[in-house]
Design a protein around this nucleic acid. Structure first.
Lengths: 174, 174
DNA sequence: AAGTCATATTTCACCAATGAAATAAAAGAT
DNA sequence: ATCTTTTATTTCATTGGTGAAATATGACTT
């Protein structure tokens, strides 16, 4: 039988029993949390699996994609840190790796010479355009049996949850 | 401004631009993937944050909770590996850590003496019962503005996605 | 009884990620 | 002109997970 489905079944029963011992527990919400965590981890695994042949990890891929998606194909380490949710140390490492492979370049900014301008190269663009399309079928398959309404709904609910998570972390680890 | 919301906005624009360059891309589905990955990672961070004061990591917590949720409070390393999605080596480590803290015990099984019976201790139960309730408010807050229909829908859609992911990985990395 | 399979642990080596602190360089403020 | 702030890099130590191979033990098969 399939792994994720197995774990979910197990989790359902487990939470059922725990909420009998501890009735104050918000059982439905706890289930949703666990579901999100499991599916998220599985999706993460899926992605890493597809990236491995290209010798990219998630952060490198994300960084490259951010650059690719920029109108001018460029950004700065600080900005990339923010959007790729990485520390500065790690971003330096990521940029090093991508520069070494010729997918991006590093250069000093004209206006503010403290800043470093990171720019995707033509080779970087070609690389993305070559590696992306083979992923499409699998992504499409994941949502193959989702109606348009399903997709809209999932999108809406995830965004709502994201908003609440932001509020939470802003309130506590500010 | 809030971090996750920021990243999502950025992602939305990025995918919009990429799908203009590469029109075959399943843009809506790609968005859902990224959303899942972002929210999942954030939730993971939330959880680790709540576990840190108790000096537990996610795998240890999950293992302990599986035991706690069992009618008889016991399991075997192999089974725990499966449901906690961990390798055997890691499960040995996890069990070591929990035994050292007196939260579980290890003993030989009666029926099959190859097996090791892992059992949660009374101290382990008390530990769980003490650490769990303080998490409830935050979990509840995450879904505070979700209607019952919202929750049902999210649950349904995540399970559907989980099922598809299982199919996918069964077909490819079998 | 011998051989094979199943279960768990240990050891070892390794890689990925993380993050704090020190450093460097340039911009901005007073 | 000096001090402060911003930005990026470097260094270093640590953590966490991973995985292969060897070992030990007991069960199952014939």
């Amino acid at each position: 039988m399939a792994h994720l489905t197995n774990c979910i079944e197990m989790m359902d029963e487990g939470i059922g029993r725990v909420s009998q011992i501890i009735p104050q527990m918000p059982a439905a919400e706890a289930r949703l949390c666990r579901l999100m965590l499991m599916v998220g981890a599985s999706l993460e695994g899926e992605l890493e699996f597809k990236l491995k042949p290209h010798k990219l990890n998630h952060s490198e891929f994300l960084t490259l994609m951010i650059l690719y998606s920029r109108p001018d194909g460029s950004s700065t380490p600080g900005e990339l840190c923010e959007y790729a949710s990485q520390g500065a140390t790690n971003m330096t490492r990521i940029a090093n790796a991508l520069v070494k492979r010729g997918l991006i370049t590093r250069g000093a900014s004209e206006e503010d010479r403290r800043r470093v301008l990171i720019r995707i190269t033509p080779a970087g663009r070609r690389f993305v355009q070559k590696m992306l399309p083979p992923m499409f079928p699998r992504v499409a398959t994941m949502f193959a049996d989702f109606s348009d309404g399903d997709k809209r709904n999932l999108s809406r609910l995830l965004r709502k949850l994201a908003h609440n998570l932001d509020q939470l972390s802003e309130a506590t680890h500010p």
